[in-house]
Amino acid sequence: MKKFKYSEITPENIYKNRRKFIKNMGLAAGSMFIGQNLVTSASANTNKEELKLTDYRYVTTYNNYYEFGTGKSNPVERSQKFKTTPWDVVIDGEVENPIKISMDEILEMFPSEERIYKLRCVEGWSMVIPWLGFPLNKILKKALPTNKAKFVKFISVLDPEQMIGQRFPILDWPYKEGLRLDEAMHDLTILVTGLYGKKLPNQNGAPLRLMVPWKYGFKSSKAIVNIKLVDKMPTSSWMKASPNEYGFYSNVNPAVDHPRWSQATERVIGGGIISPRIPTTMFNGYGDEVANLYTGMDLKKYF
């Protein structure tokens, strides 16, 4: 199977030849349904902006990463000296084979592929980013989850020396997030090691972060050090900070508003002052692949 590099899919080409773009992406991702998904959201949404990759400059300077401060430009300004080597990741909890693995080993054992995903932030903006990563299920399978494992808890690094934001009780540090086991095992859920064909920048969560494209951005933890399989639903840092505003599921859903603002529309980053808001789509446009995870569930109740 041919793998396309980012350099072969420039944003200009995307504009000129949308069909070729979609085909390439399907191949680039190594699985056809990624391509299908973009076709779905493309036809549901006539706005071409949505298919355009967000400038590298914005992807790497406009970040929510409260470990480095709450301002959008704080992460890029304050994370450049952050040390990501050596870095070990522990996978433990309800597993038969607990693993402690270094970042070098991860890069060697799990080759990264390009995945172009849309990132929808709970604040009402979105970006389209060419990530490099591999399915989380590949690494979870190595640890052999027991049948008690029902949820996966992600724990990010705790290092107030290097992360100035952690010196303030903004959130319950270290950053914690969680997924249901089936969500974690889903092929769309990836561990990210890079973007735009390059090593993952510190401000985007280096050396290892999660990306769950059908959920609001805060579900995709950065700088992960521990992946724990557990039997009970973990409480994330955001759930703890404001339980009636941030639920465990936090699936992108235009019909369920944040208690304080609407989620019906979003701004496309980099669109400029004249670009309009676009309608937000259910599951961020990935409904065809993930809606079946939630059949019969009241998504207003389990927000």
Binding site: Y58, Y62, W125, R267, I269, G272, I273
Partner: peptide, 15 residues
């Protein structure tokens, strides 16, 4: 800032 396009990634929010 509006006319010289100096509002950054989210110009409307900035205004």
């Amino acid at each position: 800032k509006i006319f010289l396009n100096k509002l950054g990634p989210e110009p409307v929010k900035e205004i």
